[in-house]
Simulated assay, not measured.
Amino acid sequence: MIAQDDVEFYKENGYLLVKGVYTEQEVEAMRGAIDRIIHRAVEANMDRNARWGGDHTPEEELKRVVLKGYHDVQYHDSAFTLAALHPNMRAVLSRLIGPNVQLHHSKMLVKPPEVGAAFPMHQDYPYFPHESHSMMAGSVHLDDTDEENGCLHVIPGSHKQGPLEHVGRHYLNHKEYPIRMGVPCPAKAGDVLFFNYLTIHGSEVNRSGRTRRNVLFQYRDPLDRPIEDKHVNWGQGLMVCGENPVFRLYKGAH
Rank of each mutant, 00 (worst) to 15 (best):
residue 246 V to S: 12
residue 53 G to R: 09
residue 63 K to R: 14
residue 250 Y to M: 01
residue 238 L to D: 03
residue 5 D to W: 10
residue 150 G to C: 00
residue 33 A to H: 06
residue 41 A to N: 15
residue 16 L to W: 12
residue 44 A to G: 15
residue 21 V to R: 12
residue 79 A to T: 06
residue 39 H to S: 14
residue 7 V to T: 11
residue 107 K to Y: 15
residue 88 N to R: 14
residue 163 P to L: 14
residue 17 L to W: 09
residue 55 D to Y: 11
residue 245 P to T: 08
residue 118 A to E: 10
residue 114 E to P: 02
residue 17 L to G: 09
residue 248 R to C: 01
residue 116 G to Y: 04
residue 130 H to R: 04
residue 136 M to S: 09
residue 229 D to F: 12
residue 147 E to F: 00
residue 124 D to S: 05
residue 87 P to Y: 11
residue 106 S to W: 05
residue 29 A to N: 12
residue 235 G to A: 03
residue 11 K to W: 07
residue 102 Q to A: 12
residue 155 I to L: 10
residue 87 P to M: 04
residue 202 G to C: 03
residue 187 A to G: 06
residue 99 P to T: 04
residue 183 V to E: 12
residue 227 I to F: 05
residue 160 K to R: 15
residue 56 H to Q: 13
residue 36 R to K: 15
residue 70 Y to R: 09
residue 129 P to F: 07
residue 49 N to G: 01
residue 250 Y to F: 01
residue 108 M to F: 11
residue 34 I to Q: 03
residue 53 G to K: 12
residue 219 Y to Q: 10
residue 1 M to D: 13
residue 229 D to W: 07
residue 209 G to C: 06
residue 167 V to F: 04
residue 84 A to H: 02
residue 198 L to T: 08
residue 215 V to Y: 02
residue 215 V to R: 00
residue 50 A to E: 10
residue 75 Y to P: 00
residue 144 D to Q: 00
residue 193 L to E: 11
residue 179 I to V: 14
residue 119 F to Q: 01
residue 19 K to G: 08
residue 25 Q to C: 03
residue 171 Y to F: 13
residue 106 S to F: 05
residue 180 R to V: 09
residue 113 P to I: 04
residue 65 V to Y: 04
residue 7 V to D: 13
residue 13 N to V: 07
residue 83 A to W: 07
residue 117 A to N: 04
residue 90 R to G: 07
residue 201 H to G: 05
residue 133 H to K: 13
residue 206 N to Y: 03
residue 215 V to W: 07
residue 245 P to R: 11
residue 183 V to W: 02
residue 59 E to M: 07
residue 238 L to Q: 11
residue 39 H to M: 10
residue 251 K to E: 05
residue 140 V to M: 10
residue 71 H to Y: 13
residue 187 A to S: 08
residue 248 R to P: 00
residue 118 A to Y: 02
residue 73 V to D: 00
residue 175 K to Y: 09
residue 245 P to M: 13
residue 113 P to M: 09
residue 176 E to C: 02
residue 82 L to D: 14
residue 191 D to R: 05
residue 242 G to S: 06
residue 31 R to P: 00
residue 35 D to E: 13
